[in-house]
Amino acid sequence: MTSNIIKANIMVALMYPASFYTSSLSSILWIGLSMISITVLTYQSPELGGWNKHQLFAVQGVYSIILGTMYFMFGENFKKLIRLINKGDLDLLLTKPVDSQFLVSVGENKIHQLSRVLGGIILLTYALSALHVNVGIRDIIQFLFFMLLSCIIIYSIWFLLVTLTIWLTNLFNIDELFTHLTGLSRYPLEVFRYLNRYLFYLVLPLVIITSVPTQIILKKPDLWLMIAAVLVAGILFFCSRMFWFFALKFYTSASS
């Protein structure tokens, strides 16, 4: 079944080659210009919130891998979910004997987002080699575990936002808001230390998405932030499930 889904998604990507090329080009451009921006920003001040140029490259690489993966996995499915809710066609999925949150979250993949993931991996590898960081198997396992937690955090925030469309059926720019929310993760936590305490805690879940995995791969982990990442991922995922089932009580179908 999985291989059929993958085949179908590859065929869709091949049907629209222009989309594939523009997406790949924008990923390359985005990564290139991010590197130039960081080089400019750290030109006279070698550190930004205690992070040097190559460490900031690593943050951008991690950001690109996580966001690319999330858009690859869920981008199309959440768009489809909004359309289903808008047209009142969601009940076709709700009647199936499978967990509804799982069913609305998977199925279609945006293959061309993988160019963003690949770009992120190249940027991260370059940063690690420039910093002369020796990465062992244990570091990679720890890194992947916290990347998974970051994905859970992003998934939960995104799903919470998309669930709002059950009440706000006219909402069609959730995607853009989500992209800008995750923009907070492009820079390390220390950049936001000038925020007042309440605002800082508000942006914390978004900022730890990239900060924690990057700290781990750079071998400067912060135990408190690691604990925070585990807690935030657990709490947000739980909230996303509870909110989804609560919202379904208010869903009104158009067909039945």
Binding site: R186, Y187, E190, V191, Y194
Partner: peptide, 9 residues
């Protein structure tokens, strides 16, 4: 985001 980035610099 831009404002805090420059404040940090």
């Amino acid at each position: 985001i831009t404002y805090f980035l420059w404040s940090a610099i």
